[in-house]
Design a protein around this nucleic acid. Structure first.
Lengths: 169, 169
DNA sequence: CTCAAACCGGACTGAAATGATCCGGAAAAG
DNA sequence: CTTTTCCGGATCATTTCAGTCCGGTTTGAG
């Protein structure tokens, strides 16, 4: 009854792309660092998203990924199903033919309704909706690290407990 | 993104109980036969439902299970959560403290909404709603077998292709 | 009192899905 | 032709799922 990590990472990775101007090409490593996602795993996930036409990939030096359409044109449902395959709360595949348990299985109808509700929510949420107030921890950490580096002779011993203020961008 | 077999069997087993007058005690074996559920698995599941106060159990000879309340008073949500634990599309547990990915994680909010929708559907569906038109295959098979037995010298050779009419109860 | 019927509940197990990693290969840029 | 970067298949460890087993406890009947 949960989304997979892969789908989770997929959405997150795409928000990282969506934060940039459309068409900007970004390497996997950059996305991983921002969103705290294992590098080779995100590689796999982006392959799926590429095949599904949600991102475009470019090989060779200067290569990477960019969104294939406007964030407002990409629904959460698209993303998730591109990665996990069709969402299905149902277990019995041929829903018309009646399931293994019973003809006109009551449980199947119930699950079908629930499934529709979930899909509605995902279908009506776009990537741009998701990108709004989301500030990934990876980015936050990077901003902090940049701030640390710029300090003159940072106090090594107390490094772990530094609680100085810093801003993002 | 699916319900477990255990929850599925749980609901099915309860519809079998709900088909009877409230308070009638039924053995596991009977329920299994009607709904085509592995016997020892259903045993486990009924234990959970017993602890949750949805069924009552009686040990010893003449023992078995009965519903602890009216089918209309038992929601699908109750049943499923009694077996699977709380339904959660969320992965990050402490939803308030912000998840591992980001403060104000957009994905979490999305999943929270979807989760609420699913729970609503399950909450507003009662066991009596589920028991209506549901005719379990196990019961159907039993009725067929009873009919076969009552025939005089049934034609053994054509047994597999017999399509005679029969009724339930 | 004793035995058999029935559930209780913890340990266990096999199979599948999940979450990831690895590595050789192909393509693009310089 | 070398470097960079993605492609994609194989592989692997862990967890969850689905289900079984078995000794124990409770209850009712004889």
């Amino acid at each position: 009854m949960q989304i997979t990590r892969a789908a989770e990472y997929g959405v997150l990775g795409l928000t990282a792309l969506a934060r940039r101007p459309l068409g900007e090409v970004v390497m996997i490593d950059t996305l991983c660092a921002e969103e705290d996602i294992p590098r080779s795993f995100l590689g796999k996930i982006l392959q799926s998203l590429n095949r599904a036409g949600i991102v475009r990939s470019a090989r060779g030096s200067g290569g990477g990924f960019c969104l294939a359409k406007e964030p407002s044109e990409i629904s959460a449902l698209e993303i998730i199903e591109a990665i996990e395959g069709p969402i299905s709360l149902q277990r019995c595949l041929d829903e018309d033919l009646g399931c293994e348990h019973s003809t006109g299985c009551a449980l199947c109808s119930l699950l079908a309704v629930a499934q529709d509700r979930v899909k509605d929510v995902f279908r009506t949420t776009s990537l741009s909706d998701l990108t709004g107030r989301h500030i990934p921890n990876g980015l936050v950490r990077q901003a902090r690290d940049r701030h640390r580096e710029s300090e003159s002779t940072p106090p090594v011993e107390a490094a772990d407990t530094v609680t100085s203020t810093w801003t993002i961008n």
